[in-house]
């Protein structure tokens, strides 16, 4: 008798569990379908009166956490704050900027999941990415530059176009193409990351590092004997990203960015963050009207 009861309980409970799983599955599929439907970022911003920006936590000069306050600080963060204020002005409301830390792999996912509204996190505008997200106009003229020792006398990449010279790059960056184009005769040594490239440069394994100017500015701040030269090669600017198909938000942001460039706020921020970088001619980065 007891055995039969247990059996009956087992069958009922199993059927219930299977039913729950099936219903949950259908519900999830349905919700996923609904959620994939378009959500307007601008409408959300107007409703919540906030713009939640994804920013970096580990990139010097653009978004690096100040361990005292626990908040990211840098050009990206300040620009996002200024944009928020400007967009608020355009919409005739007071908008607040909030910040969410993101890393390379989470920024797009969080944008898609609407955890964040926009990404200001050293994101290079590429065709591949533009299929997934919407970019604003460029907000920072990134491209490859040279990092060399101050007393080396090297002024441009042409000085390195010689088989006796070695150029250091980081694996998987656009620097390889730049070097091939601009200094085809030089030897190339590809290293794991920027830190090891810096180590190799100090050890004399090469005469220069070629990579994103933004990264080089960061390296210079910890290595005052070195400076950035050679202008900007292989222009690959950064843009602010929104979810795909957000013409309203992109339009407001582009207008705001143009206004900030016009009223001098943009140049002030450039000078604030890059004015101290050794050997950098800030006017390269500033906009002229």
């Amino acid at each position: 008798m007891e055995k039969n009861k247990k059996r009956l309980f087992g069958i009922t409970a199993s059927i219930l569990l299977v039913l729950i799983l099936i219903v949950a599955g259908f519900w999830a599929a349905n919700r996923a379908h609904e959620n994939r439907m378009h959500q307007d970022t601008l409408a959300r911003v107007e409703k919540t009166k906030t713009i939640n920006w994804g920013v970096k936590t580990d990139t010097k000069l653009f978004g690096l956490v100040n361990t005292k306050t626990g908040q990211s600080e840098g050009f990206d963060v300040d620009l996002a704050k200024a944009l928020t204020k400007q967009i608020g002005k355009q919409l005739n409301m007071k908008l607040t900027a909030t910040f969410t830390p993101v890393n390379a792999s989470s920024k797009v996912q969080l944008l898609k999941n609407t955890n964040i509204d926009g990404v200001a996190a050293v994101m290079t505008i590429t065709k591949e990415r533009a299929k997934i997200v919407d970019f604003t106009d460029p907000y920072f003229p990134a491209g490859n530059s040279l990092l060399v020792k101050k007393d080396s006398g090297i002024q441009s990449i042409k000085d390195l176009n010689d088989p006796s010279k070695t150029i250091l790059i980081a694996l998987g960056t656009t620097a390889a193409d730049t070097v091939k184009k601009e200094a085809p005769k030089a030897k190339v040594l590809a290293l794991q990351d920027y830190a090891s490239a810096m180590q190799a440069l100090k050890a004399g394994q090469g005469q220069a590092i070629v990579t994103d100017n933004a990264i080089l500015y960061g390296l210079v701040t910890e290595n005052p004997d070195y400076h950035v030269v050679g202008g900007i090669m292989g222009y690959a600017p950064y843009g602010i990203a929104f979810d795909h198909n957000q013409p309203g938000m992109v339009k407001e942001s582009n207008e705001a960015l143009a206004a900030l460039k016009k009223n001098g706020t943009y140049n002030a921020l450039i000078r604030k963050w890059f004015g101290q970088v050794q050997g950098l001619d800030v006017s390269q980065l500033e906009v002229t009207q």
Binding site: T57, T67, V102, N103, S106, E222
Partner: peptide, 21 residues
């Protein structure tokens, strides 16, 4: 730390981003 929870590991990564040394 992979989903940016500000735990010990993530914060360690933030601190050594200040300086590769």
């Amino acid at each position: 730390s992979g989903i940016v929870l500000a735990d010990l590991t993530f914060r360690g990564q933030v601190v050594y981003a200040q300086n590769s040394h």
